[in-house]
Amino acid sequence: MNNKFLKKKYFFTLLFTVLLLLVLAACGNDDNDSNNDTSNNASEGNNENTEVTVDSEMGQVTLPANPERVLAPFHEDTLLALGITPVAKWAIGESVQNYLEKDLQDLERIEWTMPLEQVLSHEPDLIILENSLDSYEGSYEEYSAIAPTYVMTEEVTKDWKKQLQVFGEILGKETEAEKALADYETKVKEANGELTEILGDETVAFMWVTGGKYFLFEENRHSANMIYSELGVNVPILVEELGEAGTAWDPISLEKLSELDADHVIILGNQKDEGIETLKNSNVWKNTAAVQNDQVYYIEDESNWTNSGLNASEQTIDELLETLK
């Protein structure tokens, strides 16, 4: 066998060996990469947040992330705005927040005092309470023994926009909260333009009639705050004179209503209420500008008007526009 043939055979054998080693090395790298990816994914899965730590009225608290059974009595409006249905709805006896019933009608009621046995029966993953705990039957420690409990600060309790942001944070719904607020601002802007065309400089007053008594909304009382400050509706002089809304809502006398100089008056309450019957038969009331000009309107359900929240505000805007058009 000549040397030339041996050299050629040796060359091809060496080349094959080198190629084989390269292939094996590549396969090994692929396996390592695959193993690394699996390890990384497992690590990421292990690091997935199962808890969230937030500030509350009780200091920093650690809560479960993305709870499935949430109980937030009287603040179901905010939960619904985030696409969450609570495990029970706030009630005083048979009375509920009527404006939310289209979404909550099938839920069991929970008494506003939050009896511990009722709370326990709903098996919540998370309990959300207002900053003042005095109205609840149980203590913070007792509710916390049932489920992780978040107590809102006074600001979060009173400001539904801030509440929506905070609920979004603790419930893993930040994106939904941002979108809901952005959509609301668009709605307010559009409504502001429509009301300017409808009313011009005319004023509007809002009054709830119940149990034969008259409750005139101050500028910052419930939905009036949104209507006057955000929608830009002009305030009647008598309403300005009432000053800031206090904790208690005192009724106004029929005689005092004779001073109501509003161009338009929206009256909330059951048409069969004795107070409305008295108004319709009162010469004092009949001599007011709104009655004289046939600019008095009646709305049966006051629930969204006397509450605050995204749903309450949007329903009120829709009803206000529909009433005044």
Rank of each mutant, 00 (worst) to 15 (best):
Glu44Phe: 14
Glu190Leu: 09
Trp160Ser: 04
Lys162Cys: 04
Val54Cys: 12
Leu216Pro: 04
Lys161Pro: 00
Leu195Ala: 10
Asp125Ser: 03
Asp263Pro: 05
Glu108Leu: 04
Phe12Glu: 01
Glu302Lys: 14
Cys27Phe: 14
Glu155Leu: 14
Lys158Ala: 09
Asn311Gln: 12
Thr50Glu: 10
Thr53Pro: 04
Leu100Ala: 05
Ile237Ser: 11
Val54Thr: 00
Ala262Asp: 11
Ala262Leu: 14
Glu319Pro: 09
Ile266Met: 00
Ile92Gly: 06
Asn293Cys: 13
Leu116Trp: 01
Thr149Asn: 03
Thr316Val: 10
Lys189Asp: 15
Met207Asp: 11
His222Ala: 12
Leu242Ser: 06
Ala88Met: 08
Gly59Tyr: 09
Leu80Pro: 14
Asn40Tyr: 14
Gly211Val: 02
Phe16Asn: 00
Leu22His: 11
Asn35Cys: 07
Asp201Glu: 08
Tyr10His: 10
Asn98Cys: 13
Gly83Arg: 04
Leu120Gly: 10
Leu268Cys: 13
Glu68Ala: 08
Glu123Asp: 13
Ala25Met: 13
Ile198Tyr: 04
Trp305Asn: 01
Ser303His: 08
Val87Ile: 12
Val96Ser: 02
Thr175Trp: 08
Leu238Gly: 04
Tyr214Gly: 04
Asn36Val: 12
Leu71Asn: 07
Thr186Val: 14
Asp106Arg: 05
Leu120Trp: 08
Glu202Asn: 11
Glu319Asp: 15
Pro124Gly: 06
Ser282Val: 01
Tyr298Glu: 12
Tyr184Pro: 03
Glu244Leu: 06
Glu241Ala: 06
Val70Lys: 01
Glu154Tyr: 08
Thr247Ser: 15
Met226Val: 15
Pro251Ser: 09
Leu82Asp: 01
Glu155Thr: 11
Leu107His: 06
Leu71Met: 10
Thr157Arg: 08
Asn40Ile: 14
Asn41Glu: 15
Leu279Gln: 05
Met114Tyr: 05
Lys158Gly: 03
Leu21Pro: 09
Thr175Leu: 00
Tyr298Lys: 02
Asn32Gln: 15
Ser303Arg: 01
Asp183Gly: 12
Asp37Met: 08
Glu230Pro: 00
Leu231Thr: 07
Ser132Gly: 04
Asp201Phe: 02
Leu268Tyr: 05
Gly168Leu: 01
Trp112Pro: 03
Lys89Asp: 01
Asp261Phe: 11
Asn46Gly: 07
Asn287Thr: 14
Asp33Lys: 15
Ala81Gln: 07
Asn35Phe: 10
Ala72Trp: 04
Val265Lys: 03
Asn287Tyr: 07
Asn35Ala: 09
Ile92Tyr: 12
Leu21Asp: 12
Glu141Cys: 11
Thr278His: 08
Thr149Glu: 08
Ala180Asn: 05
Thr17Trp: 08
Tyr297Asp: 08
Pro148Asp: 00
Lys4Phe: 10
Leu242His: 03
Glu178Ile: 03
Glu197His: 00
Leu21Gln: 10
Trp112Tyr: 14
Asn311Met: 06
Met114Gly: 04
Leu63Ser: 05
Gly275Asn: 09
Glu154Leu: 12
Asn98Thr: 15
Trp285Ser: 00
